[in-house]
């Protein structure tokens, strides 16, 4: 991608990190770790690749995204607000009673959210269903799914993986946020999913492996996946849980963590400095 665009997207990612840290910090607790590891993946999709219309969030002819790790909602909310799906002030209401921005994604409450998630393992099946519907309706658009590496433990994910290949769903592009951590510890110690690339490959998927914080690498993989004609693609993204939030980066404890607004503001200050 052109150098200017890459710079713009990097700055966007920095901005989205800051917004998300502040939203969770205002509340005082939340899934900060898994929100930070998916920033670049979602920024690349929502600012470069996805065909969407903030004024018409339910446009039938749109690209869709299923966030199977539904607890990453806050990052997506920061992006949707910035793209104009709803006012930025909504970010102050994260998880407050009566909010339109609940901890886990809810397609009936939040404009721009394409699927309700939060019970892990269900996302990829829904994405497969959407990809099938696009084919039935003659809609030449992509369905993106973003899975967690712990989320991958659920057997349903692998059932969906087989279905997507059975139906040759080349309009389906999935990502695994491979931050190598789940709640109780490192993936390797709790439920090791290695060799992850080999697993997806053996299921019949086209597999890419990239640094999930490198927008250029991500972009090349997405371009490759978009040109695929006969099978679904899985982009395995090596990421760092808590990436960019100094107080929890790389820590298992970042999964669902309490931190105060002061800490959030300090994190924002450091991110601004790095911008």
């Amino acid at each position: 991608m052109e150098a200017d665009l890459l710079e713009d997207l990097k700055r966007k990612a920095n901005h989205i990190r800051r917004q998300t840290i502040l939203a969770i910090g205002r509340l005082g607790v939340g899934h900060i770790g898994g929100c930070m590891s998916i920033v670049e993946i979602l920024v690349l999709l929502y600012y470069r690749h996805m065909h969407i219309d903030p004024k018409n969030p339910k446009m039938p002819d749109r690209d869709r995204l299923v966030l199977s790790k539904g607890h990453g909602g806050p990052t997506l909310y920061s992006i949707l607000a910035d793209r104009g799906f709803f006012p930025e002030t909504w970010l102050d209401t994260l998880n407050v009673g009566g909010t339109s921005l609940p901890s886990h994604c809810d397609m009936n409450r939040t404009p721009g959210i394409d699927m309700t998630t939060g019970s892990l393992g269900q996302g990829l099946s829904a994405a497969v269903g959407m990809a099938l519907a696009n084919r039935l309706d003659g809609i030449d658009r992509k369905v993106y799914a973003l899975l967690g590496d712990g989320d991958n433990n659920e057997g349903q994910t692998w059932e969906a993986a087989m279905t997507a290949v059975q139906y040759s769903l080349s309009n389906l592009i999935a990502f695994t946020d491979y931050n190598k951590m789940q709640i109780d510890g490192n993936i390797a110690d709790i439920m090791n999913t290695e060799d992850l690339c080999e697993k997806w490959r053996s299921f019949g998927w086209r597999v890419f492996r990239v640094d999930g914080h490198d927008l250029q690498q991500l972009d090349e993989a997405v371009a490759g996946a978009r040109s695929e004609k006969s099978r679904p693609s899985m982009i395995i993204c090596d990421t760092v849980k808590g990436k960019g939030a100094f107080f929890c980066e790389g820590q298992v404890g970042s999964h669902n963590m309490a931190f105060d607004l002061e800490t959030a503001r300090e994190a924002v200050r450091r991110l601004k400095e790095a911008d």
Partner: peptide
Amino acid sequence: DLMKSTGTNIFRERFPHRAFNVGV
């Protein structure tokens, strides 16, 4: 994957071979 939430990590410390964490 909710051993810490349920509190049974102390059970595993006491009986490492009698506590199983199957992931999500």
